[in-house]
């Protein structure tokens, strides 16, 4: 799964620092994401995970350091040992390869569903309207909303809006897709339908994904690497397998215990309950709906 050695990473953070006023959110952060990687960032809130996504999308300015996309500098470059800001035009060009799905969907309420999806392909990429509509219809079909193309975003449920937002991001054919807590604003019973669609996308494409989520089951199913953040630093990283079955750091264990442990037995969903050695854990946990079991292809509950 990991990119072969020597290949240019899709995303590289080099000595990235981010401050908001006096608060240091990220301090000298270094990491790379290989092409085709699915990396999930986990950690307590305020640990800087979302800031990382927002920096990649240029929604925030980085205080110091560099971010590279496909080996090209995103916002700043080092020229003769000096750190210089790049022109907005350059940023826009690089940005076109990156898509993002937001926690609050952020669909444009002044446009219908299909207009939301074709807006950027037509007006940013210069695609013909016919082609864009054809593509958008395909994507709407993929997210199970083929019958909603003329609806207004606010007429849709939260889950439906988020599915449209996923289609809107995919319509730009991004090389990198950023998923920022895409299910946090949704009712628990519709989380599965959205995650199911993203799993399909992960399985059927080679888009590089950088994911911030609290859905540990989803992180486990989709990603091939997990980074645990705390206080703006990477505390631990590993494959989901290592990470969830045998976390090395105490802080990771504490975090996992706090977010996903069964509230009654204290057992992690993928581990036997303590004190009940040998017996398997309860099959389902109330806090994390399993994406594999609750999702259908079209994602519609009825």
């Amino acid at each position: 799964m990991a990119a072969p050695n020597g290949a240019v990473p899709a995303i590289e953070f080099r000595d990235v620092q981010k401050r908001f006023g006096d608060t240091v959110v990220l301090d000298g952060l270094n990491f790379t994401v290989a092409k085709g990687d699915r990396v999930t960032l986990i950690g307590p809130s305020g640990s800087g995970k979302t800031t990382i996504l927002r920096l990649v999308m240029t929604l925030e300015d980085l205080t110091d350091g560099y971010i590279f996309i496909d080996g090209e500098p995103l916002t700043h470059a080092e020229v003769d040992g000096e750190r210089v800001e790049l022109k907005p035009k350059h940023k826009t060009e690089i940005r076109k390869r990156i898509g993002m799905v937001f926690q609050q969907f952020n669909l444009f309420p002044n446009m219908t569903v299909i207009e939301n999806i074709i807006e950027a392909p037509v007006h940013v990429l210069g695609m013909s309207k016919e082609d864009a509509i054809e593509k958008a219809r395909g994507l709407l079909d993929q997210v199970g909303l083929a019958d909603k193309e003329d609806a207004h975003p606010l007429e849709l449920s939260g889950g439906q809006q988020q599915r449209v937002a996923i289609a809107r991001a995919l319509a730009m054919d991004p090389e990198i897709l950023l998923l920022d807590e895409v299910t946090s604003a949704l009712d628990p019973e519709i989380v599965g339908e959205v995650l199911g669609i993203l799993k399909d996308v992960a399985e059927s494409t080679d888009i590089t994904m950088l994911i911030v989520t609290h859905e540990m089951q989803f992180a486990r199913d989709v990603s091939n690497r997990i980074l645990m953040f705390d206080g703006g630093r990477i505390v631990e990283e590993g494959t989901p397998e290592e990470f969830f079955t045998n976390p090395k750091e105490q802080r990771t264990r504490d975090f996992l215990q706090a977010v996903v442990a069964d509230p009654i037995t204290g057992a992690l969903p993928w581990q036997p309950a303590p004190g009940a050695s040998g017996t398997p854990a309860a099959p389902a946990t109330p806090t994390t709906p399993s994406t594999t079991s609750t999702t259908t292809q079209d994602g519609d509950p009825l």
Binding site: K96, N106, E119, A120, V124, R168, A169, M172, L178
Partner: peptide
């Protein structure tokens, strides 16, 4: 809302668009 501005950035729209 802020999210609307951010979504246009994520879609690489120019400031005029």
């Amino acid at each position: 809302p802020q999210g609307q501005w951010e979504a246009t950035t994520a879609l690489s729209m120019t400031s005029a668009q």
